[in-house]
Amino acid sequence: MAEFWFYDHQAAAKAEVPDPGHALTWHYLPSSCNESLHAEHCVQQWHDHRLTISDPLVPFEDGEVNQKVVQFLWDHQRVAILKQTRWIPELVRYLRLRGVRMIVAPWADNHQQYGPLWRDVQQNQVLAISMFPLQLLLPCEATNDATGYRNAKLVAPGVWCVQWMWAELSQAEYDFAILPHLRRDIYQKHKWWRTGRSGL
């Protein structure tokens, strides 16, 4: 069972913060807070946010993509953090076709039902983590209520956790095969990403 732990250090009481062990942990540290938990494992830090993990970063070949995404290996899987608040569906398709199985989108708007992150999860059959509030997004086939959302559970004040099994993704891919039916030949022919649109 894989886990993602979210620590809101504004709300979490210091003495009661549990240790998740091998889980992926995300710390929300408001500027006034100077916590330095697991400093030896910290591989990425943003303003007010810090990802704590011991596994290596794996840059993409393309520098443009690296400006948008951070990729690392965790639990033998490729995980990508989207550094943007908005993105085009081509970006998550690019990540999925290069083996990414989980997206972390801390700055995505998480209030729209069936929003961009949910749509990309469904059409790429990846897992995704959104925050504020913490939610796990996964293919509809992998949730009991077929909504594609799994809410986090409160572990302690200010500490939330979501759990999943990677096999859930494989099962969803088996139940509803999407990627094997991509038509790269047709897409390459149309090249909609080029400038200079034609009309009917």
Partner: peptide, 14 residues
């Protein structure tokens, strides 16, 4: 304009 990024040329190349 996002669709003019260079990395898109490699999107379906593999």
């Amino acid at each position: 304009q996002d669709l003019t990024d260079h990395w898109l040329n490699a999107l379906y190349s593999q």
